[in-house]
């Protein structure tokens, strides 16, 4: 019974992902993505990782996706943007990437199928995770906190509204942002 639940949620996750990445409307795509994330959360739960499942919902489907929503709202792409996206969606564009991905998938499946028969199912509680996090992985936690802080500062800096009207300022910004550009 639970095994069937796993396959169902897997299928949901997969299809939701495919839909999310093939929509032309960003908002619709985002809804599909959230569905996919929720499905993955279910899988986590089934696997015996309830803490991970909760985090998946709270942080991924909650916080991160809300960021996307904000940005899409700010950009206000409108109808013509959607139309453009739709025009780009013809086979000539996606057949190549799809082929490459298929090859990669086949390779991975071949590799995975040669693995020994390992079964999941051990329940790992939040307590165990917490002990692990603040025991042997405490350094990783610190680094993660640094990373988040850097992300915060970076997002603030990058998201600032540069005054593009003044040419001097723009050149300064360009030289600051596009150091890699040019030959």
């Amino acid at each position: 019974m639970e095994l069937v639940l796993f396959y169902i949620s897997s299928a949901v996750a997969l299809f939701a992902t495919v839909f999310a990445l093939t929509r032309s409307n960003a908002a619709h795509a985002l809804i599909y993505l959230i569905v996919s994330l929720l499905a993955v959360a279910v899988i986590f739960f089934l696997l015996g990782a309830p803490f991970a499942a909760a985090l998946e919902i709270v942080i991924y489907a909650g916080a991160i996706m809300v960021l996307f929503v904000f940005v899409i709202m700010m950009l206000n792409l409108g109808e013509e943007g959607e139309e453009r996206e739709r025009q780009r969606m013809h086979p000539a564009v996606w057949i190549g990437p799809a082929l490459l991905s298929a090859i990669l998938l086949v390779e991975m499946i071949i590799v995975l199928s040669k693995m020994s028969d390992q079964q999941t199912g051990a329940l790992i509680t939040a307590k165990q995770v917490g002990i692990s996090l603040f025991g042997p992985y405490v350094l990783a936690v610190e680094i993660a906190s640094m990373l988040l802080l850097a992300g915060l500062v970076g997002a603030y800096h990058v998201g600032r509204r540069f005054r593009l009207s003044e040419p001097d300022d723009q050149s300064a910004v360009v030289s600051g942002d596009d150091k890699q550009g040019g030959d």
Partner: peptide, 10 residues
């Protein structure tokens, strides 16, 4: 990068 990945896994 995907090309590289394929080659690597191969």
């Amino acid at each position: 990068m995907v090309f590289g990945l394929i080659a690597l896994i191969t």
